[in-house]
């Protein structure tokens, strides 16, 4: 039983590590800023998930107590990762995209990042 437990925990650790590594490798390999965002937002989620699952299994089966911290970490990562990605995407749109280089925003004409008061834009460029 002990050996089985150790193997299971190790498998989750290795899976987590591999996905974390691939996520980081994606940062180097992908060749444009928006695509690079995909690496850390996704591959690292499962990377972290694997490590957290291993930690949870270990605390339940080896130390015989339930730990909620892993659930909290999962929750916080799921809440914060999209927001970080969104901030980086917004900076990219702000600095490198124009309303013409993005697809049509439908009935609203502009995307929110480009929808700024002309005065703000003037001081921004100055």
């Amino acid at each position: 039983m002990d050996q089985f437990l150790e193997i299971t925990v190790s498998v989750f650790l290795v899976v987590g590590g591999v996905f974390g590594l691939i996520g980081s490798f994606g940062l180097i390999k992908l060749n444009d800023p928006m695509s690079r965002l995909h690496g850390p937002t996704k591959a690292s989620t499962l990377g972290l998930g694997g490590v957290l699952l291993a930690s949870m299994l270990h605390s339940i089966l080896a130390e015989h107590h339930v730990s909620f911290h892993e659930i909290m970490i999962t929750l916080f990562v799921l809440l914060t990762a999209p927001i970080t990605a969104n901030f980086i995407a917004k900076v990219h749109i702000h600095r490198h995209e124009t309303p013409k280089s993005l697809p049509d925003a439908g009935s609203d004409k502009l995307w929110a990042t480009h929808d700024i008061v002309p005065d703000d834009r003037a001081t921004d460029e100055a």
């Binding site: 928006m34 965002l37 995909h38 937002t41 996704k42 989620t45 799921l78 990762a81 999209p82 990605a85 969104n86 995407a89 917004k90 990219h92 749109i93 993005l102 697809p103 925003a105 439908g106 009935s107 609203d108 004409k109 502009l110 995307w111 929110a112 990042t113 480009h114 929808d115």
Partner: peptide, 20 residues
């Protein structure tokens, strides 16, 4: 959208009627 297959949500349209 950000957490799932190959997509990152980047922006919302000025009045909130579309996602980029």
């Amino acid at each position: 959208i950000t957490m799932t297959p190959g997509t990152v949500s980047a922006d919302v349209s000025a009045e909130g009627h579309a996602l980029l």
